[in-house]
């Protein structure tokens, strides 16, 4: 009995595969879930909000701010009180397909914004748990508008 059921189930799948050749539209519609990355952005403390806002345009729904201190290598600047070593590490979770665009934007802003120099890098994430959490992290709204 159970064999008969499995045979019945298998037939339509095979038939569909035969009807839809490789590369056809029907197969292209099936998309894999987006991979996620952890984007670290290290900037001066005064500019933290600015960079966090800029990143939110790249479907970043969750960001963490960590207060940090730079390890200034230019000691003379420290003696003169010019060393601005108060930093913020912004840890954002971003979709892999948007990470490159976000990094390009950051690179341009690091060059053009006064006192806005910083570094940014991405670290691949290997896993997360929970569908709702995943949908929140990759800003997958589906039919929700």
């Amino acid at each position: 009995m159970s064999e008969a059921i499995t045979k019945k189930e298998k037939t339509p799948i095979r038939a569909r595969a035969a009807r839809a050749p490789r590369g056809s539209k029907r197969i292209e519609q099936v998309t894999a879930p987006h991979k996620l990355k952890l984007l670290f952005t290290i900037v001066n403390r005064q500019k933290a909000e600015l960079y966090a806002d800029l990143l939110q345009a790249y479907d970043v729904n969750m960001q963490m701010f960590l207060s940090a201190q730079g390890t200034a290598s230019t000691e003379m600047l420290q003696y003169l009180g010019l060393g601005d070593d108060e930093k913020v590490v912004i840890a954002s979770i971003i979709r892999e397909d948007l990470a490159a665009d976000a990094l390009h934007m950051l690179e341009e802003k690091f060059r053009t914004i006064k006192n806005g120099k910083g570094i940014a890098y991405t670290v691949p994430m290997s896993g997360t748990i929970g569908v709702a959490v995943y949908q929140f992290l990759c800003n997958h709204r589906g039919d929700r508008v």
Binding site: A99, L103, L106, E107, F110, Y121, V123, P124
Partner: peptide
């Protein structure tokens, strides 16, 4: 940890 893309260095 491996880092795949970097800007600002």
């Amino acid at each position: 940890m491996p880092v795949d893309q970097v800007v600002g260095l």
